[in-house]
Amino acid sequence: MSFLKVNNLKVYYPIRGGFFRRVVDHVKAVDDISFELKQGETYGLVGESGCGKTTTGRTIIGLNKSTSGEILFEGKDLTKLSRRDFHHHRQDIQMIFQDPYSSLNPRKRVLDIIAEPLRNFERLSPGEEKRKVEYYIEKVGLNPESIYKYPHEFSGGQRQRIGIARALTLNPKLIIADEPVSALDVSVQAQVLNFMQDIQKEFNLTYLFISHDLGIIQHMCDRIGIMYRGQFVEQGTSKEIYSNPQHIYTKRLISAIPDINPEKRVRQVELRQEINAEYKNSYEKYFNAEGKVYQLKQISDTHSVALP
């Protein structure tokens, strides 16, 4: 039994039109994707804005409704659970959001922010609750006294740590991190990323790491899925994706990353031009008549590509 298995997940939004506002078409935010997460690993979901990576994460945690498909978490299909049963499973899956400035309620103290999930799921005495919150606030490297402060008294990195403490309180097994460091400066970003790796070891966490930043994804993830217009174009280990990309879209994404070595500048531009030319010339090889990608095909045990 896999830890998390997503089978043929689709999330469609209706487009209404005409005189009677009938459903005339769908926005296919997530269009038939399947992937699997092993316990303890970090799986990266990469793609550009609008590719459906965030919708996928939100659907797994139940913030969006799936149109069809299965989300098997430890063998149970989350899409078929009743509200009550789903609530129970919510404890095991938590989310870290992108913007540490807007994801924390500015009128609540840190204590109340971190204790909120506890209050939803467990009945603890105020003393126990405080002890638990203090335990986690120390785990994320903040001063226990800071639980009586308000979010605006913290820096961006500290706020993101508060968000992580909140996600940790219920002992989750899976954490969905949606662009957790995009809003942070490089040095603060490093701090949060290191810290996420530490707690992963300590609490045996599994991460679904959603990001548009390929540098961060490579640094953090064991395996990666590349999304394009709601579908997967390629999936494999970090190494496979970065050193042996097969799909033209993956190649395009990787060649777009600015190289930190100024000496390679010219080469980088040439590479992009080559890949753009290939993209134009061999478009039919990678995309069907509707401009969609093909189904994933296995090319090694771990590596699969969307090819006809």
Binding site: A190, L193, L214, G215, I216, Q218, H219, I257, D259, I260
Partner: peptide, 8 residues
């Protein structure tokens, strides 16, 4: 502090 694609 940059997670660079060049170094792992």
């Amino acid at each position: 502090s940059i997670p660079s694609t060049a170094s792992e």
